[in-house]
Simulated scan of single mutants.
Amino acid sequence: MSDDKPAREPIEEDARIDALEKRLAAAQQREEQRNLPKASGADANYRSGNRVLADLLGGLLGGAVIGYAIGYFTGTNPWGLLVGLFLGIVVAFRNIIRAANQRPEE
């Protein structure tokens, strides 16, 4: 028993284990690709709808506030407010048309 040999011989790598490790790595890679977050069409439509709403409300409210302020300081209050609202509506629709004419990102 004084031999220098270990009690067990080291086990060589089996070809089946190598094939199994390759299959496992490929499966993990496919799973990572499958679980990547993807922007769906519904999300993009929701964002564009929110943008249209924000443009419309921002144009109306911004035009009303600026028109009222100009009318208040110049003494032409109802006309300043009406002109401001009209310009706000024009700007809002211009922004909405520009957003509608843009191509979606892919």
Rank of each mutant, 00 (worst) to 15 (best):
S2M: 00
S2Q: 06
D3V: 15
K5R: 05
K5T: 05
P6I: 08
P6N: 08
P6H: 12
A7M: 09
R8S: 12
E9Q: 08
E9R: 04
P10M: 02
I11N: 02
I11A: 01
I11Y: 01
E12R: 02
E13V: 05
E13Q: 02
D14V: 05
D14Y: 09
A15R: 08
R16K: 13
R16Y: 09
I17R: 04
L20E: 10
L20T: 12
E21R: 10
R23P: 05
R23W: 04
L24W: 07
L24E: 12
A25H: 12
A25F: 14
A26H: 12
A27G: 00
Q28S: 13
Q29Y: 06
Q29T: 03
Q29E: 09
Q29G: 11
Q29L: 05
E31H: 06
E32H: 11
E32Y: 13
E32M: 06
Q33M: 09
Q33F: 09
R34V: 00
R34K: 06
R34C: 00
N35W: 04
L36H: 12
L36C: 13
P37E: 03
P37Y: 01
P37D: 06
G41L: 07
G41N: 13
A42V: 00
A42H: 03
A42C: 03
A42S: 00
N45K: 15
N45V: 14
Y46K: 01
R47L: 11
S48D: 09
G49I: 05
N50M: 15
V52R: 04
V52Y: 08
A54M: 10
A54F: 13
D55L: 15
L56T: 12
L56Q: 11
L56F: 14
L56D: 11
L57E: 05
G58D: 10
G59M: 03
G59E: 01
L61H: 06
G62R: 02
G62M: 03
A64V: 04
A64T: 00
A64S: 03
V65G: 12
I66C: 12
G67V: 01
Y68P: 06
Y68M: 11
I70D: 04
Y72V: 02
Y72E: 07
F73H: 09
F73Y: 07
F73D: 06
G75K: 10
G75W: 01
T76D: 06
T76G: 03
W79P: 14
W79S: 15
L81I: 15
L81H: 13
L82R: 00
G84E: 14
G84C: 13
L85H: 05
L85K: 09
L87R: 04
G88C: 00
V90Q: 12
V90M: 14
V90K: 08
R94D: 01
N95G: 00
N95Q: 00
I96L: 13
I97H: 08
I97Q: 08
I97D: 07
I97L: 10
A99G: 10
A99P: 07
